[in-house]
Design a protein around this nucleic acid. Structure first.
Lengths: 366, 366
DNA sequence: ATTTTTTTGATTTACGTACATCAAATTTTC
DNA sequence: GAAAATTTGATGTACGTAAATCAAAAAAAT
């Protein structure tokens, strides 16, 4: 049987009240006694029963999620996942609020972070913008002992507790490797379409992509990076211009959002030589394009994973408990048209497999 | 505030004892009363606090994992993950025992299943072999109201509650698609190496692979399937023979285990034209081969995921609770040498990221 | 209408932890 | 060595649920 607080008391030769004082770092314990108790804890291998503790405390975790606004399928999917988590709140003892800020706007993000700090939540998850002001705002939160998890886009150099997102350099490298191999002997240059170099994840993907292309596939020159602000309309114009002004584009790597515009532009040149297209994030649009052969591969990060992971980590940090790393890695999914998961509404992420003996649920995670 | 049993009692106008009788399906309640209570539960939206319930019951879940024995890196990794779960037992209220059976031996598996049934556990996880006897044994377990989850290899046609593993047809299709595209214009035939056609996962991978190759890349003929019994020595002999007797092998798809033998055989022909190799499961051997360029892509299923998922599902089934499908999908990881996660001992799957502000853990899941 | 059986209510204890209160013991201070 | 301050112990309540007991009420059987 698992040792309890009573066992600590017996082992340390002190009363339950003293054990409680040590465990919950309350005042009024001599350091000699404290040590005696701590050694007993170590010796008998006591681990706090978190379920019982939460029950006794009737603890709830107020969390704040700061997400970029705008017409971006991935971000809207992410928000839907947060809303799904809100629906689970009673069971998970969370109380989550969503704060929406304009995309690619560091100032607004700083304001939102400061406001979040004022609300004194048990944790904050934020889709970060890489800027010194934002780093400072995150560090202020940490100084106020509020755990911070970056979501999707990281903020190195800050004191954020954890990053719930993919390794974007590896994602870019993978894209480069697939691009090079899919192009095979074909000649031609490769275009890169990003959202903004302001966000870390886009910069990192570009770095990884460039590194592999330069080293392993030097035959394919890279065009200057296009920045479409993750905006479909803008992206469509950029790609239209590119494809009319430039000859010999063999591949396009779309490392940001706004793929609706990219797909629209690609559709206009139906019949011409195939361009190898690799994009990010599986949305209804990229899925359809993958099926139609307009896009060759989609690299995806599972927004549901990221949200659930962020919540688990924030809880753990709030409780001062170790995070189980193996469970929190967010992976890069590579989708070809041959391994697409069954279509499923991300928001309507309802429990499947509830009856007995159903087929395995398709299109999900862990 | 979340409604409690007291709220049910008040809402239904009955006593706490009656509510308890209904909730825990005890006898001695008239059907009229039972319905009154059930309606009240529905009406006020009561959800049982599982943590509190488990605390009150001091519930433990005795589970049995039936795994194939043998010198197979993936299966040994799987076993290591089960052992890691055993280490977490006190916290997770599980009590897991491992039963080892000879690989590809349906009779032994049936015996193990029957023995498991005699032990009356709260659930059984099994790496299935596709045979009518095994199906019958699994159905016996289910008839005895013991939840069964198939692990890695499924058993359709049986009444297993859930499959914790990947969509192997999709995996095979993906392998086919990658093989076809990586080969590009190159000519030559493609060999397929399996473990045994007795296990479902191998058959399904073959089906998927064949479908894509036949349809999308008819230029590459498939060689007859080689069965290596997942045994490195046997595999090495098979591949040695193949490569000396056959000319013009452009690709090899290894859909089972025993890749050590494959890699050894490949090493012997260093200097000759590159053969495109796609294999399954990331082990120290395949990882090294990927880095060396001997293997072009590795499709992987995360054993840690599968084990943790199986446990979550078994618990849910034991409690008669709905499974959260989105969290239980096991994904197919595609590894190129460009997106290999940092090396990590699968067994020593210790919590990372335990201090504050560490880099995100690499090489993991959910 | 009485007895028997079944159903319902009232109450208590337990799970492991948190938290509060008050008394007793110990240490520190003067 | 006495007073003051600090530390420790003893005890009780709470969290939401499970489970048991016994009495009371209601229903069914005679």
């Amino acid at each position: 049987m698992r040792p309890t607080v009573h066992d600590i008391a017996a082992a340390a030769g002190v009363s339950l009240a003293t054990v409680d004082r040590v465990l919950n770092q309350r005042a009024g314990v001599r350091s000699v006694t404290r040590e005696k108790v701590e050694q007993a804890i170590e010796r008998i291998g006591y681990v706090r029963d978190v379920a019982a503790a939460n029950l006794a405390k009737s603890r709830v975790y107020p969390f704040i999620f700061i997400l970029p606004a705008g017409d971006n399928s991935f971000m809207r999917g992410l928000e839907a996942q947060v809303r799904a988590a809100i629906a689970r709140s009673p069971v998970e003892r969370t109380s989550i609020s969503i704060v929406s800020v304009p995309a690619f706007n560091a100032e607004a993000l700083v304001a939102a972070l400061d406001e979040a700090q004022a609300a004194a939540p048990a944790g904050v998850a934020v889709v970060a913008i890489d800027s010194p002001d934002v780093i400072a705002a995150v560090n202020r939160l940490r100084a106020a002992r509020i755990p911070v998890v970056t979501l999707v886009s990281d903020l190195p150099g800050s004191q954020r507790d954890h990053f719930a997102g993919v390794d974007n350099v590896a994602a870019g490298r993978t894209a480069g490797s697939l691009m090079g191999r899919f192009l095979g002997g074909q000649s031609g240059s490769v275009a890169v379409l990003a959202g903004s170099m302001l966000v870390r994840d886009h910069r990192e993907r570009l770095d990884g992509f460039r590194a592999v292309m330069d080293q392993d596939f030097p035959g394919h020159a890279l065009q200057p990076v296009l920045e479409g602000q993750d905006d479909p309309a803008q992206v469509e114009r950029l790609i239209d211009d590119l494809l009319t002004s430039q000859e010999g584009i063999a591949g396009i790597y779309s490392l940001g959002a706004g793929n609706r515009g990219l797909i629209a532009a690609l559709k206009k040149r139906a019949g011409k030589a195939h361009i190898c297209v690799i994009a990010h994030e599986l949305t209804p649009h990229t899925r359809a394009a993958l099926n139609d052969g307009l896009i060759d591969a989609v690299l995806n990060q599972d927004a549901g994973h990221e949200v659930r992971s962020a919540i688990r980590v924030l809880k753990a940090k709030a409780d001062g408990v170790a995070v189980f790393g193996a469970q929190e890695r967010i992976r890069i999914d590579i989708f070809l048209k041959d391994n697409l998961p069954f279509e499923q509404d991300a928001a309507a992420d309802t429990p499947l497999d509830r009856g007995s003996n159903q087929e395995p649920a398709q299109g999900e995670e862990d």
